[in-house]
């Protein structure tokens, strides 16, 4: 399933003294089976854009095509509910949406809203819980007795259990410990590779964006500032730093090193491994001369 936006515009609280434009002429395409990272400052319009992806917000201008469904400012389009099953959104701090008595019931909530029978939903809950790396013993526990990290996973499982084609993640690792972060990010990456679902990741971490995404969208003041592959995006680090955004650690290290020795080593390295390779190759080149 593909999502295409055409001149998408959104104004908050239109017609009130609080009117605020959040999105201007957004044209992006999220192809099927892709991994897209959206980065930008707080207030750049990331979250607003993301809420359009399953029709939670209706554009105030332009249009968005989600699969076969077109949503414009005039019409919401029929079958929005079906879209919400196909496009699962994991909001920031998703553990805040837990409400059921048991973990199992909470995970079943989504699938059953979309018409799954109790039996099917339970099966999906089990699978989803396994996907997020929790043991089945937790199924009958109250979600409020779990640790923060576990709650986060249960909430994510609640969205995964709906079997979405596109998974939209709004800073899914915010507030987690480093190890939890890596585990959850690896889990999403695995889903992307093995199950063939698309992922849209909103993140502040350039390391996550460069490591997992195959394309990156940079949002700035409600517009798409730049889009491209991680290589393209991070090939001009100075530009990003001007925008007040970060670059991956490896790129930063390389920049500093190049600055110190006054020579260019290689293209920006997107991961520590790549950086090691590039420095190694550089040293080898220098030694041979």
């Amino acid at each position: 399933m593909q999502i295409v936006t055409k001149d998408l515009e959104y104004v908050y609280q239109k017609g009130t003294p609080f009117e605020k434009r959040a999105l201007f002429h957004i044209n992006v395409t999220i192809p099927s089976h892709s991994y897209t990272a959206v980065i930008g400052h707080t207030g750049s319009g990331k979250s607003t854009l993301l809420q359009h992806l399953n029709g939670l917000l209706q554009p105030t201008g332009g249009e968005i095509r989600i699969g076969d469904l077109t949503v414009t400012s005039e019409k919401k389009g029929k079958g929005l509910k079906g879209i919400r099953q196909k496009v699962g959104i994991v909001f920031q701090f998703p553990e805040h949406q837990l409400f059921e008595e048991t973990v199992e019931k909470d995970i079943c909530f989504g699938p059953m809203n979309f018409g799954a029978t109790e039996e099917e939903a339970r099966q999906q809950a089990k699978t989803a819980l396994k996907l997020v790396g929790l043991s089945e013993e937790l199924l009958n526990k109250s979600p409020f007795d779990l640790s923060g990290g576990q709650m986060r996973r249960v909430a994510i499982a609640g969205v995964l259990a709906m079997n979405p084609d596109i998974l939209v993640l709004d800073e899914p690792t915010a507030g987690l410990d480093p190890r939890g972060r890596t585990e959850i990010m690896e889990m999403f990456y695995q889903l992307y590779q093995e199950k063939g679902i698309s992922i849209v990741l909103v993140t502040h971490s350039m390391e996550e964006a460069s490591k997992y995404a195959d394309s990156i969208i940079i949002m700035h003041k409600g517009t798409v500032y730049k889009k491209g592959t991680p290589k393209e995006i991070f090939s001009s680090p100075a530009e990003l730093i001007d925008l007040g955004l970060d670059v991956p650690e490896s790129v930063r290290f390389q920049l500093k090193l190049e600055d110190k020795i006054g020579k260019e080593i290689a293209e920006p390295s997107l991961s520590i491994d790549e950086l090691v390779e590039n420095i190694f190759a550089y040293i080898k080149r220098v030694n041979e001369k």
Binding site: L56, R84, Q85, F91, H96, F109, G110
Partner: peptide, 16 residues
């Protein structure tokens, strides 16, 4: 704000 957020999160899970 929070009501709005939670409403949206539950709508994303199929609540009408």
């Amino acid at each position: 704000d929070e009501t709005d957020k939670i409403m949206k999160a539950q709508m994303a899970r199929g609540v009408d």
